[in-house]
Nucleic acid binder design. Structure first.
Length: 860
RNA sequence: GCCCGCGUGGCGGAACAGGUAGACGCAACGGACUUAAAAUCCGUAGGCGCGAAAGCGCUGUGCCGGUUCGAGUCCGGCCGCGGGCACCA
């Protein structure tokens, strides 16, 4: 290129993106309505907490959703693609305490900033449907739901142990307790018994478990995690009569078949019986206190010894008259699971065995493993916990296999009225009370005369007071001078409002339904939710595999039970995307540095003062490690489309992605290449809609075929969430277009088809550039309103096939033959090839393997 | 400890369903254009060896073994990394 020639033009991302964003907004391109005549598709990305800034991890998530939304739209679906804000939560209150900002203002300011950032990304949201969960017009509906849950016995209140921070005067979540101390105050956390509200998720334990089987488009591992979380175990409750006491001790077991091997019973340190006995036994009280002091962290449990305290009580064996078992209080028995008490069978449970060895209790095996001799089989240091085997030493169970023995033992227990078959779950009811201001007020009133009285529906919403102070510890709602004082709706007497607010998972448990009719006077309208739900494709982080996704599944069932909607599974398809990671940097003093503070010269890192910098491992971007990339700077420099392309192309979407500056520059180069190709094609293009001639010279014919193969490939890639591969396929097509020698007069029509196809296929990923190029190619309609390209099956098929030619399984040659060439003809060609002759080295082919369109393997 | 996932060039990653390993990109190197740089374009490239070159041979998907005409892919056994769960009776 000489200086007189024009320099290559560069794509002006900023101008272009702003232009098309305002065109879409002005035309209401992405506004949708319920339309029963059309097939619907609901794409949803997990909505963000308005923390203040959008980061690239968010953008990766939303870009994937946007690709799906735009792709499905092009396929003719009526696509719902909404966005909103999960706006209640602790950070707003912490900001209030730190800076005096009101949580509402802090939150709404953040929303304004983040909305602006989202809009710059060109995401195809129906912004009319935006919701913020902290708005009374949102949370009033969940107050109504709660009242319905109360009436349906799906919500209740009970005393529960909580982590209490005595300095902050509030409950802490488990995650907020670090080494037994409050994460903010540093005060030793106390266990406190508090009356808390619960939702009866356990009522749906079986349904939630069974429902997992219907979620075919969920990742296997998420289903497994939920299954384990629910933790269903079939077993039996056994009642042991106690010597000298009228009451009986109930235990839970999954192995009633091993009852004849029972050596002891053990109860949890906070079992009511233990507490009762401790009142008359100082030694026992000390033991229980020690147990309570022991943490439940992994490290503690690993090393913790099985310890027990013999209460002196004797439990009578249900099957063996005259035989009694000692009753211990044991540190490894959990009050929260099963009956809070067990019987110990040392031979067939490792914990019981450890315990029995320590306290010199009998170890009697009752299940004989296959291939063992009954007279010689002994238990050493390892219990036999497997199922295969035959019962022995067990009277009426002798000779039975374990499953049959379980049934027989349970039947016998039931006949003796000493137990029943039952199912235990690991799942606990969901505690939703938080002693916090910035959450949805729980709509009940405590009346000294009438007890708990629901707030009448007409009085909803119970709104948060705005004049609150955050300058002292404790729940600002409880400390507010007037807010909580009300008349009892029932008796009219003086009463107090509930000052707890809901766990913020409450809001995210139904927002997907609100999006269907976001401004309706009721929580949702049947016509809309019946049409739109379930969400066809939900996209978000794996960190919500259990909590949010399980709560939402439960909530949907609870709403269905209360007549709100008809579906039970809110999310038909789920995709969990990987995190965005970045190198970490530390200076000589070990302080974290932001990437922009680090200079790189010939691979050597230094800080602003030239001191050495050490790069650490790749980690999820986080503020604390400063390995974050400012989204604004990226979009300013390269535009949203380039960032989107990079986030999609660099790694498979389910895997973590490493953000690198070099990577985004590669995407920027591609954007410019395509822009130049479409705005300044190598030959003049005929007008839009020009027919491609049937007879084409070979290079053009090849390009045409490449176009149609690319349509097939990219469509398949998008269906399967393989965005990185889709991008590769489009780039391959672009390479093929650029490699074309444009000396044929028919090139224009072929070139137009090729470029238009590349633009269309790329449209969901780089929508602004797509619109710009679509217009530059002479179209007057929006690309967003165009339909997805359909491949000509005839053209997409290769007309020639390349056979890999092997001799004894080793590749020696390839041969190119017309598609459909018969086996004999191919083999004939193959055998004549010099490379084959050379490899055969005079030996005669003994056998020839032929795989159509793939391979010929000659075996001498 | 249990469950799940993953190990492919310097790097991110491709490879349908057992059939040409390394597509596409990043970084790199060589070249063109330029006073120079940026930008752009052309070219090279798993490793080792032979050859002036076209090319040819060997080797290669964490390790060891197996099945097969043929294994990154299937089977068995190891090693390593990541994630989840964990005194759940």
């Amino acid at each position: 290129m000489t200086t007189t020639e024009p320099r290559p033009q560069r794509y002006n991302a900023k101008e272009t993106e702003e232009k098309w964003q305002s065109v879409w907004a002005g035309r209401g391109t992405f506004a949708v309505e319920t339309d029963r005549a059309r097939p619907k598709y609901y794409v949803l990305e997990m909505f963000p907490y308005p923390s203040g800034k959008l980061h690239v991890g968010h953008v990766r998530n939303y870009t994937m959703g946007d690709v799906v939304a735009r792709y499905k739209r092009a396929q003719g679906y009526n696509v719902l693609h909404p966005m909103g804000w999960d706006a209640f939560g602790l950070p707003a209150e912490n900001a209030a305490m730190a800076s005096g900002d009101h949580p509402a203002r802090w939150t709404y300011d953040n929303i304004a900033v983040m909305r602006g950032q989202l809009k710059r990304m060109g995401l195809s949201y129906d912004w009319r449907r935006e919701i913020a969960t902290c708005h009374p017009e949102y949370y009033r509906h969940e107050q109504k739901m709660f009242l319905d849950f109360l009436a349906a016995d799906l919500a209740y209140r009970r005393e529960s142990w909580v982590n209490w921070d005595p300095v902050e005067n509030t409950v802490l979540a488990n995650e907020q307790v670090i080494d037994g101390r409050g994460w903010r105050s540093g005060a030793l956390v106390e266990k406190r018994l508090l009356a808390q509200w619960f939702l009866r998720i356990t009522k749906f334990a079986d349904e939630l478990l069974d429902g997992l089987g219907t979620l075919e488009r969920w990742p296997e591992r998420v289903r497994v995690m939920q299954e384990k979380w629910i933790g269903r175990s079939e077993g039996a409750r056994v009642q042991f009569a106690l010597d000298g006491r009228p009451d009986r001790l109930e235990v839970f077991t999954t192995r009633p078949d091993t009852l004849f091997g029972a050596a002891f019973c053990a109860i949890a340190p906070n079992h009511p019986l233990a507490e009762e006995l401790a009142r008359g036994n100082a030694e026992l009280a000390v033991f229980i206190a020690e147990c309570n002091r022991m943490g439940t962290s992994e490290a503690v449990l690993e090393t913790a010894e099985k310890r027990g305290f013999d209460t002196g009580l004797k439990a009578r064996h249900p099957f063996r008259a005259g035989v009694t078992l000692p009753v211990y209080v044991a540190n490894f028995v959990l009050m929260e699971y099963g009956a809070g008490a067990i019987f110990g069978c040392p031979a067939h449970d490792q914990r019981d065995l450890d315990f029995a060895r320590k306290y010199r209790l009998a170890v009697v095996p009752v299940v004989l493993p296959p291939g063992e001799d009954a007279t010689r089989f002994e238990i050493g240091t390892e219990a036999y916990t497997d199922e295969p085997g035959t019962l022995f030493n067990s009277e009426f169970l002798n000779g039975l296999a374990v499953p049959a023995a379980k049934r027989a033992a349970t039947q016998k227990l039931e006949a003796l009225q000493a137990g029943t078959g039952t199912i235990a779950y690991r799942l606990r009811d969901w505690g939703v009370s938080r002693q916090r201001y910035w959450g949805c007020p729980i709509p009940v009133i405590h009346c000294p005369a009438c007890g708990i009285v629901p707030v009448p529906e007409a009085d909803l919403p119970v709104s948060l007071p705005e004049d609150v102070r955050f300058d002292r510890p404790g729940n600002p709602l409880a400390l507010h001078p007037t807010w909580k004082h009300v008349r009892c709706p029932r008796c009219g007497g003086a009463a107090e409002r509930e000052t707890d607010t809901f766990d913020t998972f409450f809001e995210s448990s139904w927002y997907f339904a609100r999006f269907c009719s976001p401004r309706a006077p009721t929580a949702m309208t049947r016509g809309d939710v019946d049409y739109w739900l379930p969400v066809d494709q939900y996209i978000g982080g794996i960190e919500h595999a259990v909590l949010h996704l399980l709560y939402a599944r439960f909530f949907t069932r609870a709403l269905a039970a209360c007549g709100y909607l008809a579906v039970v599974e809110p999310f038909a398809g789920l995709f969990t995307q990987g995190m965005v990671c970045h190198e970490t940097y530390r200076d000589a003093d070990g302080n974290w540095l932001f990437p922009e503070e680090v200079h790189r010269t010939d691979g050597v890192l230094s800080d602003a003062k030239g001191r050495p910098v050490v790069s650490g491992r790749l980690e999820k971007m986080s503020k604390s490690k400063k390995n974050v990339v400012g989204l604004e700077a990226i979009v300013d420099a390269f535009g949203a489309d380039t960032a989107r392309l990079y986030l999609l192309s660099d790694s498979p979407p389910e895997r973590d992605l490493e953000w690198t500056d070099a990577g985004i520059e590669g995407s920027w180069r591609y954007a410019n290449r395509l822009w130049r190709l479409a705005t300044d094609p190598p030959v003049d293009l005929p007008p839009p809609g020009a027919r491609v001639p049937h007879e084409l010279p070979p290079p053009l014919e090849d390009l045409r075929r490449a176009v149609h193969r690319t349509i097939v490939a990219v469509t398949d890639d998008l269906e399967k969430f393989r965005f990185n591969r889709g991008v590769a396929h489009i780039r391959e097509l672009t390479n093929a277009i650029e490699a074309l020698e444009p000396d044929e007069h028919s090139a224009g029509a072929v070139l137009r088809e090729a470029i238009e196809t590349a633009v269309k296929l790329l449209g969901p990923m780089m929508p602004h550039l797509g619109e710009e190029l679509w217009q530059a190619l002479g179209h007057t309609r929006l690309l967003a309103d165009e339909s997805w390209p359909v491949a000509d099956a005839e053209l997409a098929r290769e007309e020639r096939v390349t056979y890999a030619v092997q001799v004894s399984g080793k590749l020696r040659d390839t041969v190119d033959v017309p598609r459909g060439t018969g086996q004999d003809a191919v083999i004939e060609v193959v055998l004549k090839r010099p490379a084959v002759q050379r490899a055969l080295d005079g030996r005669a082919p003994r056998k020839t393997i032929f795989v159509l369109n793939r391979i010929v393997n000659v075996v001498p």
